[in-house]
Nucleic acid binder design. Structure first.
Lengths: 215, 215
DNA sequence: CCCGATACTGGATATAATTCCACTGCTGAA
DNA sequence: TTCAGCAGTGGAATTATATCCAGTATCGGG
């Protein structure tokens, strides 16, 4: 059995609720709370709203984010747009220790970019923290366009994970000896021996985007 | 003094926050909480976010609905016309003496970019030549996203035209005295007196894109 | 020198909001 | 008849969130 799309029919009341959510979101800029839904619909119990939301979620037309206030998202059948060739890249912010880089929780935004802009193809944008790559023209707050890859060649800028920390450095390797080099004399190179240290390459840098007034 | 509309300039941090609110709203479907803003920005105190929100409200670019969770509304200046989907930006290469920057002959390529990427809106991409802005993280071959404007404020990176030459420098002005400052000690500042020297501002830098190779 | 603006940390508190539980009543299908 | 889905009431526990208060530090102007 599949839980999914083909749109079980909504009851009269349910589509009324769905429409209400859309309308309230439109006018206020954010989705309503259960209490607000109940008030608008004339319910005397917030739980009436809650039950409707559950039903809408089960029918796949609504997303409920557990624990988040106003955590409702109406599943739109894709709002037109969607010009064919563009890629939509997630912007990854602070990466929590131990969690995969591309976890939804790290996504700060999504930008559409022209695929021809970077080669090889960029898979995501990582917001760089700190000045350790300053002399490579990668500054604090910049977005590093990253191509996912578990291998790197000497001289490439890599996104590496060391003991649960994600870092951007220039990669250099000779046999088992790996160096992760900052491009800023104020920082120390990281020296690793692959026979004893664990190193995971998450991707290689293929571009930089700096937006805004940091300029 | 009145607090009102005409848009006091936002500080760098403030516009960063504003952009974050816009982006997170776009991604999740509802505005962030103070705690979420703090987390994304790296604050350890939710109050840091709160203070920024107050500042943004006072400057008239944000609405805060008291008591409502996620009660944030970014006041869109509704960019005349439609900020609709993608923009296609021309990449401008070497600019021939005496001809307008946007002349067709200078266009090397066109890239589609997400309008949300830069604020204010980028009008074209200029390929930077030379290392005179190295310490600002703008390297030879980088694309500078430029917002067309004939005025600039001190501290901004500008595209200026001096005696038929187009150059990228940091702008500083005190009365009639204008300095065009390189960000590289190997280059000399350019000092101008507006009473005798001609200076045309072609635009202000709002972003940088570096693709591939140098990395 | 003190002041206001900016940019934060850290802690406390009241309230906004989610979420669970126990019930009532209806309807249509097995 | 019994059961599942639908549509609600009412109350309460627990988080999530907004919001206040008291600090620290830096910066530029009067």
């Amino acid at each position: 059995m599949e839980a999914s799309a083909p749109m079980d029919p909504l009851t009269e009341r349910q589509s009324e609720i769905l429409r209400l959510i859309r309308d309230l979101t439109e006018v206020s800029g954010f989705p309503p709370t259960r209490a607000e839904i109940a008030r608008s619909m004339g319910f005397r119990s917030v739980n009436a709203a809650e039950q409707h939301l559950r039903a809408l979620e089960k029918k796949g037309v609504l997303e409920i984010l557990a624990g988040a206030s106003r955590g409702l998202r109406v599943r739109e059948p894709r709002p037109a747009g969607r010009l064919g060739r563009l890629m939509e890249l997630p912007v990854i912010g602070r990466v929590a220790a131990g969690s995969p880089i591309l976890a939804e929780a790290h996504v700060q935004a999504r930008y559409q970019l022209d695929p021809n802009l970077f080669t090889p193809r960029a898979d995501y944008l990582l917001r760089v923290r700190g000045m350790s790559m300053r002399d490579a023209g990668i500054l604090d707050g910049d977005l590093l366009a990253v191509h996912r890859s578990h291998e790197a060649r000497s001289g490439q800028v890599v996104v590496a994970r060391l003991a649960d920390e994600v870092t951007v450095k220039r990669f250099r390797r000779r046999g088992y000896a790996v160096q992760l080099l900052p491009e800023n004399p104020d920082f120390e190179p990281i020296e690793l021996d692959l026979r004893q240290d664990s190193l995971a390459i998450e991707g290689i840098g293929v571009g930089v985007i700096r937006s805004g007034k940091g300029l």
